[in-house]
Amino acid sequence: MIIALVTALTLLCSGIARAQAGADAAPAFFKLVELAPGVFAATDIDGKAGANAGFVIGDDGVLVVDSFYKPEAAQALLAEIHKRTALPLRFLVNTHYHIDHVSGNRIFAAAGAQVIGQQRMHDWVQSENMKFLGSKATDADRERIRNLLPPQLGYGQTLHVWLGRRSVLLRSWPGHTGSDTVAYVPDAGVMFGGDLLWSRSIPNLIDATVAQWTQSLERMAEDEGVRYNIIVPGHGEVASQTELAEFKTYLTELRGVVAKLQRQGLAGDALQDAALEELNARYGSWRYNRLMRSNVRDMADELAGTKRLPGTPQRR
């Protein structure tokens, strides 16, 4: 059931099985693009890495953003970094706890990185990720999640990380999971938005608070006078303010449509069917559109005040 909610993360059970078999080591997990001098985005190719990542080369070291779903992809990214610089790997930032963004944490830590995350996510890496395992999960799957490395350094609202003269600013914005980080590279006008931005893709709302998320989207692309127009999303291609505005409209419309239908007395499947009919007019062509039904369900729960959020007891 839950597995169906998060198929955007790729089918995790089968993914784990493939990873363990060490099957076909396809070299191209991601597309690597240099967005500005020393600022790279690694965008997932057909789910082979499971999510996007990136890295920033400063004067005295390297900072990586996110570590993929597939450990092999993290290894490949590490190799790409070593090809481009001899500077030490100093930090890995996790934009949030979801398994498709933290699976390679141990690989980067072993290569010298300190793992940083917003402080609330620390306890969720090995606990909340369990819910992404379907009913067919094996002990090995559970063991894999128990072995994920959580952040070693936590912060609350803001953290400045200096790589020599180049700085990377980390800020926590609420919305996607309740512990989300955006990593800004002010001198390059680049921001790594994690899963707070989905570019023309239907998002995963399993842990989301849409009311807070839309407010974060209003404010997060401009910081200390810098307007960020190169945005690396957690999934999908590198985006701009245009895609951010579209995504904000999606969440706003989703909330409006579901609230309207609830006021009309609809619930359950009837509400979902009616909402999908309305939302498909504009968003039917977006990636992961099969997640829209679960988006409607999550939105309805949020509006009804019955949504379960990370860090609270599991819903039965």
């Binding site: 409209t249 706003t252 409006g256 449509v257 006021r263 939302l279 007019a281 504009r282």
Partner: peptide
């Protein structure tokens, strides 16, 4: 037309 339709759907 698309933006107008979005507004109409988003309110009641």
């Amino acid at each position: 037309r698309e933006d107008i339709a979005t507004v109409v759907r988003s309110v009641d």
